[in-house]
Design a protein around this nucleic acid. Structure first.
Length: 577
RNA sequence: CGGGGUGUGGCGCAGCCUGGUAGCGCACCUGCUUUGGGAGCAGGGGGUCCCGAGUUCAAAUCUCGGCACCCCGACCA
């Protein structure tokens, strides 16, 4: 491709709304353009990288036994009503009406449509398993889109759905897709980890996420220092909390009985702890939630936070949100800040394990400006069981091996779920077994963010001058740069090399622009083509050209006659095994 | 949803406080020079100052309303 005929315009200025590197570089390199909040055009250079990734995805999924199709982006409300998600899915679902007033949504995911397809075609266990995928434009109306393609509202996603007669068959597909993902992300040059995840809104029994560890990531993952345990924060469990000096030194006085202390205006754990001179670890805080099944009070250790996902799973409710002031007052009889388990009635109380064994603790008195001190379970508060309802933090202990967990940020690039019969059952996607009995199919679903993966690759592969593409994702494999367009010998020599590379079907960009060398070098660094060949007047006078890798920038002088060969060798060397 | 901010040529911004009909850098066009890390000189083109209403002799500037976008926060009692 000749640059002069390609559509590629770079910019020196950093767009002011771009906060993260991948976003800045993609805009500056002329890969994407923002059209509205969280909505982008993929310009030719960007589209080439996305296409490269899509080709890799298709190749690996085909190997894993998946079959491609394409479903509509716009979906009728009826299907979503059938699965129950029309009501469950919140404001992220972009809903619309057609001219007849019929309701539709712009699909954020396609479980309903695929289930509708399969239930019509597949009726026998003999036809199973099936595994279908598409690469589609999705839309999720995020509250706050940001970071360019990392968290857009409209985005490209590969989503696969598998259907099975037996758990073993589902397990097989789940494992095959997991392996395919690992191959895909490795090909992208990504440093990633696979973590256990909660199956969340999509529901189901098991789930893993593929995370690219990066400070700009919006997810939190916990990894064990001692074994291979890794989970996202929503899912992560622990065998014990991080030790804190305060906890160790907290002398367990003999219970003298619970007593009331005035705590005027002290509404937070921090304030109460400071005011009464107790460690936050010895405060039991009471958080009140609103659910469709009524209010719920959660007890958690003062220095810790409730994990809403775990709580939602335990309670088995659809809606869960922190109670507002009015509800807190109605439930606890006190303003926000003074709720406590003692004498709390008319509300379900659940407790996190973090408070189990805490003795002589402090808690709200359900009365304005007062806390109980020296309270104890079994005496002042009666609870039958403690559950895992806490957000695991850095330094907590691994549930498998007791070593310390380490927290880090991650970019979620892939997510695989075992769905079970969550959709097949309500939607009647059934098959007949070998005895003629009808059963709902077992399903799996497998998502992979196309744009986000490319963005993550840039986050991990760049320097202060620009992108450093791993070869498989590079929009072009090679760049040929004639330095002086007025020097006919230079132009001819470079043009000949370019033509020969095209002959060899190398993905090559020829910078035939009438620009000064500095501009060409800087643009080359910015767009990050992995292998570069420079033809300049001086070296050409010695019959030589210069080959270098964007990765290390080391220049190698090569005789003109060997230029094409040197480029082909470099491409081979840069290709993943 | 709450708070803050921004909206002026393709991009980045100044001008607004203290009203007098718009300016800078980059980019763009023409010419000459220049050509191994974002060239120099000269000349030139381009703006409904987000939209609407109001105040005024006069509004980018003041007032009110709207829209769009950006950032921060979203309550752990």
């Amino acid at each position: 491709m000749r640059w002069s005929r390609f559509y590629l315009f770079t910019t020196r200025e950093v767009p002011k709304d771009a906060e993260v590197t991948s976003h800045q570089l993609m805009v500056r390199a002329g890969m994407i353009r923002r059209v509205a909040a969280g909505i982008y055009s993929y310009l030719p250079l960007g589209w080439r990288s996305l296409s490269k990734l899509m080709a890799i995805v298709r190749r690996e999924l085909d190997v894993a036994g998946c079959v491609e199709l394409t479903m509509p982006a716009i979906q009728p409300a009826e299907l979503w009503q059938e699965s129950g998600r029309w009501e469950q899915y919140g404001k992220e679902l972009l809903r619309m009406e057609d001219r007849h007033g019929r309701e539709f949504c712009f699909g954020p995911t396609h479980e309903e449509v695929i289930t509708e397809i399969v239930r019509k075609d597949v009726t026998s266990y003999r036809q199973l398993p099936v595994n279908l995928y598409q690469i589609q434009v999705k839309f999720r109306d995020e509250v706050r889109p940001r970071f360019g393609l990392m968290r857009g509202r409209e985005f490209l996603m590969k989503d696969a759905y598998s259907f099975h007669a037996t758990p073993e068959s589902l397990e097989e597909a789940y494992a095959a897709l997991g392996k395919a993902y690992e191959r895909i992300f490795r090909a992208c040059g990504l440093d990633f980890i696979k973590v256990e995840a909660d199956s969340g809104a999509i529901g189901g029994s098991a789930s893993h996420e593929f995370m690219v560890v990066a400070d700009t990531g919006e997810s939190l993952v916990l990894r064990c220092a001692g074994c291979d345990y890794a989970a996202n924060q929503e899912k992560a469990g622990t065998s014990g909390l991080a030790k804190s000096p305060a906890e160790d030194s907290a002398a367990d006085d003999l219970a003298e009985g619970v007593r009331l202390e005035e705590t005027p205006g002290k509404t937070t754990v921090e304030e109460v702890a400071a005011f009464l001179g107790v460690a936050p670890q010895r405060i039991v805080k009471t958080i009140i939630y609103r659910t469709e099944a009524g209010p719920v009070a959660v007890l958690v250790r003062g220095d810790r936070e409730v994990n809403a996902i775990k709580l939602k799973n335990l309670l088995d409710v659809q809606e869960l949100e922190l109670a507002d002031e009015a509800l807190v007052e109605a439930v606890s009889g006190a303003p926000v800040g003074f709720a406590g388990p003692i004498g709390l009635e008319g509300v379900r109380i659940v407790a996190d394990r973090s408070v189990e064994g805490v003795t002589n603790f402090t808690c709200g008195a359900n009365r304005a400006d007062a806390h109980w001190v020296g309270a104890n379970f079994g005496k002042d508060v009666h609870l039958d069981e403690f559950h895992d309802l806490m957000l695991v933090a850095d330094g907590d202990r691994c549930p498998n091996c007791d070593q310390n967990l380490v927290i880090s940020h991650g970019i979620e690039v892939g997510h695989i779920f075992k769905l079970g019969t969550k959709y097949s059952e309500p939607m009647g996607c059934n098959y007949l077994d070998d005895r003629g009995q009808s059963h709902p199919m077992l399903m799996g679903c497998y998502g992979l963010g196309i744009g986000r993966t490319v963005a993550a690759a840039i986050e991990q592969n760049h320097d202060d001058k620009g992108i450093i593409w791993p070869l498989p994702l590079a929009p072009f494999e090679a760049l040929v740069v004639p330095l002086n367009m007025n020097d006919q010998e230079v132009v001819q020599a470079a043009g000949k090399i370019y033509e020969e590379l095209v002959e060899k079907r190398v993905d090559v960009l020829f910078d035939d622009r009438q620009e000064r060398p500095g501009v060409k070098f800087n643009d080359a660094d910015l767009i990050g083509i992995p292998i570069r060949l420079v033809v300049g007047s001086k070296s050409l006078a010695n019959g030589e050209v210069e080959v270098s890798l964007r990765r290390d920038g080391e220049k190698q002088l090569v005789p003109l006659a060997n230029a094409v060969e040197a480029m082909l060798d470099a491409i081979l060397a840069e290709s993943p095994a």
